[in-house]
Design a protein around this nucleic acid. Structure first.
Lengths: 197, 197
DNA sequence: TCATGCGTATGATCTAAGTCATAAGAGAAC
DNA sequence: GTTCTCTTATGACTTAGATCATACGCATGA
């Protein structure tokens, strides 16, 4: 998102984090801009009973947590690494200076926010209007899109639990529904992995 | 959002629309920036069977539909007036020029998008994790917040059907649940209107 | 004035998804 | 190699909310 040279120019620091490290917690104020260098980060809500809802998954080059900076609210979700990850971290005031001096980058943040808004709108509509099978397929298609080539078979890099946490369903429901989808030949299960064709 | 003088400077036009006018349809490309002068506009998904899901309601001064402009995608929802409404309409290229020349306004759009993102995230989490009563209360509290004073009793300016369309529930469920909530004294029903206290 | 439509209201029934229990494979940790 | 933990898997049972049917109040307008 923000290129290397600007990260340096505006005093970003690189931080290396092992898998399963909490970067920030829901309810906490936002002081930094974050960008993934490599690895993977999830943002998720945790309810009282520990149930998780994954709001987004971020990897190579993607920024996360900026909405709290822009909107001046506390983080609505927590951010946790799901792989060994390194991130760039820039102070909020440096970040806003950078935006002021770089219109195209600023504009690009609008683009990124808008796309996320679009995704959330789609999922919201899915969850409220469609049965489990449809929801799962929509999320999987979206992920394929995001993760790479639309052509080749796509081995979904998520567990049933993670898919459940993204669709608001239960693991068992996801497992059963995905099995049904594979029986209807809508997707494949190879070696327990979900594969879109 | 964009002040009067800038609207004029960047060639916005004022358009008056009666209640129930379609401003744009889902799937169509975006050419204009829109801002409500007075009246009210809803943005909603419509599914094959005509079921509606309301993504947002916009009134005095609020902009709508910009995400499609920023993100360069077709409208994911349709926009329809729900009262007699007048809107300002500005060509996309004028809009981007305006942003380039007015950093604070540009920044404010980040703020607006971020807040919407936050709302959607909250609703998404609600819908996927909580029972009907909780969902409804969360949406109503959010609306109170948005529509005005948090102190006084708040007469919810929406029908049961609209609340259903915002929470992904059915009218009957909303009616029954709101009745239960009023019996548990969590809210009042005065003259068939929902009133938060 | 009466009809039409919309919003509210309420009960009976149905069903998709959640819950619970149980188990087997796979990898990591000891 | 054995133990632990996580993931996939499957079946029995429960339940929240959807669906369907019906009704009544109220506004609009022909």
């Amino acid at each position: 998102m923000i290129p290397q040279n600007l990260l340096e120019e505006y005093n970003a620091r690189i931080v290396n984090l092992p898998k399963d490290t909490i970067i920030f917690n829901q309810g906490k104020p936002a002081y930094y801009y974050f960008q993934v260098i490599h690895g993977e980060v999830k943002m998720a809500h945790y309810n009282e009973d520990g149930q998780e809802f994954i709001q987004g998954i971020f990897n190579n080059g993607m920024s996360f947590g900026e909405p709290a900076l822009f909107g001046e609210f506390t983080y609505p979700c927590s951010a946790v690494t799901i792989k060994d990850t390194s991130i760039a971290k820039m102070r909020s005031d440096d970040f806003f200076k950078l935006l002021e001096n770089n219109f195209e980058i600023h504009k690009n943040f609008n683009r990124v926010l808008s796309k996320r808004l679009r995704y959330k709108g789609i999922i919201l509509n899915e969850i409220s209007s469609y049965p489990a099978a449809h929801r799962i397929q929509t999320v999987l298609k979206y992920l394929r899109n995001k993760y790479g080539c639309e052509q080749e078979p796509f081995e979904v890099p998520f567990t049933r639990q993670q898919i459940a946490d993204m669709t608001g369903l239960r693991v068992e429901t996801v497992i059963k529904t995905i099995k049904q989808l594979s029986q209807k030949d809508e997707l494949n299960i190879q070696d327990h992995k979900v594969v879109l064709k």
